[in-house]
Amino acid sequence: MKKNSGKRKISEKISETIMSALAGIGVLAILFIFVFVFLRALPVFKESGIGLFISTGFERQVVTAYGSAEPLYSFGLLGLITGTLATTTLAIVTASLIGIGSAVVISEFAPRPLAYSLTSLVRLLASIPSVIFGLVGVIIVVPFISSLFVTTELQLQYLSRFQITGRGLLASVIVLTFMLVPTVTALSADAIAAVPKRFKEAGYAMGMTRFRVILKIILPTGRSGIIASVILAAGRGIGEAIALAMVCGGIGLVPDLSLGFVTLLAPVLPLSAAIMVNSEGAGSQSVSAALFACAAVLLLIGTVLSITARAVNSYMRKKIGDAA
């Protein structure tokens, strides 16, 4: 008996060690990525300084740097950063509304067999490669936008500032929304289905209608899962390159809100799409450093997003107690 337990202790120790080693490798890999990316981007950070975050003109600077004999490290990423933030924020807002709404329908209203098949369908949608979304964007969304909103007069009016082609912020947001809805829906549906029945019964027993139970009990109780789904979708949105590169218009303009609706038709260039579009020039030392600077800024945005999400969640948990 004693011997047996001794043996078990040893095997437990071994598996524990292996697991911590594997976890350690994971952490090291992430650290390595951060260090590597920031080191490669360092010349750009040094040379551009704060200008990296407050000046524009990235596409032109890349072309100049590529053609120049001397390495040029001065770049301005403001247009790309705002492009990433604008596309992701707008897409996340619309995708959250649609996704959480669909999740409520799937988990609360649909009869069980239908809910089951809808869930499988949504999961399938979540795994569609993004290049397909980009293709649909180019073939359907962009022509649709240009036939609906783009006229020759409008194009002439703004010709001195940018070209209106149908590719731009609106097309990017629509394509990105389609990509993010399945992620939000699938994970939120799980979170909503996990809300204990006894909480819903508490609501019904105090005379709430179904709609009020959803609004006051199901959504607040499932919020940490729902927030997680939105964060995950935001992460995917920030990192999305191919689909956006196909429909964004490829020019890193800072969205000018004074233009009103035309802002949505103006071209944008998010960071990840910029990396992809310019990757052919990565043979040049300075272009490569510029792309790594884009990557570093992307990593930063992602890190800030993840930390904020954690902070929000733990704040809410502290304030109203842990559900379930």
């Binding site: 508490a202 609501g203 109203i320």
Partner: peptide, 9 residues
């Protein structure tokens, strides 16, 4: 109910 069901607030 059988199980006490205060809401998570």
């Amino acid at each position: 109910f059988q199980q006490p069901n205060p809401l998570p607030v």
